[in-house]
């Protein structure tokens, strides 16, 4: 029984949140990795693209709520998501047209594009703050829980409860759908194949008659969809605040690099590695050990390896370890 209780505690506080957070990071890292593969630079504006997309979605959510439209037990934001994606897609195409295209035609060095993306990031961040402000915004509605802790206890008769939030369930399901669609698109459709060809070898792709501008356009649209989805899922799960999304940049980059920049499978694996490391290392293990160890050995302290204030340090350390020992990442991404 003790072992079961320990397992439930671990599931409740580490595995379920880790899965949800991992899924959010994975979708975010997919966007970074796609831009890296196709446009060949690290997009520092990605965190703020997520913030921008979430902001657009929140505005539509409010409009829906005001009009009395709801999605039953699910959050209204899911209904607003396609509209948010559309707005973000248009905005990204606009930035590409106004900003990035010039440097692409100049064949500028990647580091110049990184600086340019930094400029875009601040404009996006400024716009987001300008439109929606810097407050913490909670836009989740509908049912709060799939299983509440009390129901779980009554169902199983265990001492420990397992609560699964609706947003966590939605995150995992949405992530699976997004990944399935993305891989189907990349592997089966003509456009997806041309994107992969372009990513593997630009010159060869051009020779075979692939239109680079079309590839770039499709990439931005996919990135808009991924970034907005990741941002909305994260915002539903926690809350929306422009600055948090900027800070998400680090774990997302860590995830993309751990998996191997440019490799979509790697981005997903990297997302979960970073998320589980972050959640597991900052979680106080006292309760779990209390169940597993005999009473006289049970710890008094929290047994928290690192305080949650340093969760960014976890992704950073993972990043450094990967850079030191395997700079191409787990799944052999591109590296120069």
């Amino acid at each position: 029984m003790d072992i079961l209780n320990a397992l439930v505690v671990l599931t409740n506080f580490v595995i379920v949140p880790g899965l949800a957070y991992g899924a959010q990071l994975a979708i975010g890292a997919l966007g970074v990795t796609l831009i890296y593969g196709i446009l060949r630079f690290s997009n520092f504006a990605h965190g703020d693209t997520m913030a921008f997309g979430t902001m657009a979605t929140i505005l539509f959510t409010w409009a829906f709520q005001a009009a009395g439209i709801s999605f039953g037990p699910l959050p209204t934001a899911l209904l607003a998501l396609p509209l948010g994606i559309a707005v973000t897609g248009l905005f990204l195409l606009g930035t590409d047209r106004v900003v990035y295209r010039f440097y692409r035609q100049q064949k500028a060095k990647p580091v110049i594009l990184v600086i340019v993306s930094l400029g875009v990031m601040f404009i996006m961040n400024g716009l987001t703050r300008f439109i929606i402000g810097v407050r913490d915004i909670n836009f989740s509605d509908g049912e709060r829980f799939i299983i509440t802790a009390r129901n779980f206890k009554e169902m199983t008769g265990l001492d420990e409860g397992l609560a699964i939030k609706t947003t966590q369930g939605i995150t995992i399901v949405t992530a699976l759908v997004v990944m399935a669609v993305l891989f189907w698109f990349l592997n089966k459709t003509r456009t997806g194949k041309s994107m992969r060809a372009f990513s593997d070898n630009e010159d060869l792709a051009l020779l075979s008659g692939i239109n680079p501008e079309r590839v770039v356009m499709v990439t931005w649209l996919i990135v808009a969809a991924l970034a907005t989805t990741a941002g909305v899922l994260y915002g539903l799960d926690k809350s929306f605040k422009a600055f948090t999304y900027f800070q998400l940049l680090l774990p997302i980059f860590a995830a993309a690099i751990v998996g191997g920049l440019g490799s979509p499978v790697g981005a997903i694996a990297g997302g979960f590695v970073v998320a589980f490391a972050e959640v597991a290392i900052t979680y106080p293990l006292k309760k779990v050990l209390g169940y597993l160890l005999p009473d006289n050995l049970a710890p008094d302290a929290l047994v928290q390896l690192i305080s949650t204030d340093y969760k960014f340090a976890v992704s950073f350390v993972i990043l450094i370890i990967v850079l030191l020992f395997k700079p191409t990442g787990l799944f052999k991404g591109q590296s120069v």
Partner: peptide, 8 residues
């Protein structure tokens, strides 16, 4: 690669 320094 140059962007790694930026991220680090």
């Amino acid at each position: 690669r140059s962007d790694y320094l930026a991220i680090a």
